[in-house]
Design a protein around this nucleic acid. Structure first.
Length: 274
DNA sequence: GCCACTGTTAGCAT
DNA sequence: CATGCTAACAGTGG
């Protein structure tokens, strides 16, 4: 579930707990969490101090002294929790990282086991394709560059917004919300969008993501930030999950279709097909 | 119980 | 190469 706004919220919540903290002995409860593990040991991170927490797309980067970095991806159900050690460890906890001297630990919990962790740095790889292949950040890209993303592309606009190599961090919910705000039909061939429409799309993308971040993301299913705050952007979802409800703009009914195998909500009246 | 559905992505087919 | 489907997994709801 976590898309860019949720991951950004999680990172901001974790910062005060993690930056400057020394990591103790890792407990890896689900070894498959570790991706491309050969030659990489978590033990190399023990005793390292965390310097900086960053977000890239939907990934969380934990940068450590000594040039090592932990890259987490929450996929659909991953959670990063800061808890006291006496809090019971349930069966979905995949990794425990004690924070030395703080009476707390970081736990990676993930019901569906899709999430992963990559270790970068000395002795391990410096680059991983997951990170390198990522497209630009939606809140950093300028309009000119944004427009170029869709030139000569044959895909439908929603599919491309979801494609992390095209642009990073947008998932199913925000793709629908952005397209609704821009009044663009999700099946519109991306290359057919006129400059004016693309500018509207760019502005809508920025507005929706910024608003969602300010509301600490959307509380859906397993999501909460580090402090257990579920966020409240979901009440502002205009179309996502609202099949049959009235469009807030024209009062017509919100429709649901499949695009790239994903549930897609839109208003057929406001978002005309080209 | 069974089946359909779920917010992501890699990998394979086209 | 680019694009589209499906499986990977576990839980929930009809």
């Amino acid at each position: 579930m976590p898309e860019l706004p949720e991951v950004e919220t999680i990172v901001r919540g974790l910062r005060p707990y993690l930056e400057g903290a020394e990591m103790g002995t890792f407990r890896l409860l689900f070894p498959s969490l570790l991706r491309r593990a050969p030659g990489v040991s978590l033990a190399a991170f023990e005793g390292n101090k965390i310097t900086t927490l960053r977000r890239r797309g939907k990934m969380i980067l934990v940068e450590c002294e000594g040039g090592r970095t932990l890259v987490f991806h929450l996929m659909m159900t991953g959670q990063m929790l800061i808890v006291r050690p006496e809090v019971p460890v349930d069966k979905h906890v995949r990794l425990i990282v004690p924070l030395v001297g703080r009476g707390l630990e970081l736990r990676f919990r993930d019901i569906r086991k899709f999430g992963f962790l990559c270790c970068l740095g000395p002795s391990g790889p410096l680059f991983i394709p997951e990170l390198e292949a990522l497209g630009p950040e939606p809140l950093e890209i300028d309009f000119r560059s944004f427009a170029c993303l869709f030139q000569g592309r044959r895909g439908r606009i929603k599919s491309l917004l979801l494609d992390q190599r095209t642009i990073a961090g947008i998932g199913n919910i925000y793709a629908d919300e952005v397209l609704f705000r821009a009044r663009i039909h999700p099946l519109t061939p991306a290359a057919s969008l006129a400059e004016e429409k693309l500018r509207t799309l760019w502005k809508s993308m920025r507005a929706i993501l910024r608003l969602a971040i300010s509301r600490k993301g959307s509380s859906i299913r397993d999501y909460t930030d580090a402090d257990g705050d579920p966020g409240d952007f979901q009440v502002l979802h205009k179309v996502y999950g609202r099949e049959g409800e009235k469009c807030p703009r024209c009062k017509g009914a919100v429709r649901r279709i499949k695009v790239s195998g994903r549930s897609t909500f839109y208003c057929p009246h406001c978002q005309k097909k080209l």
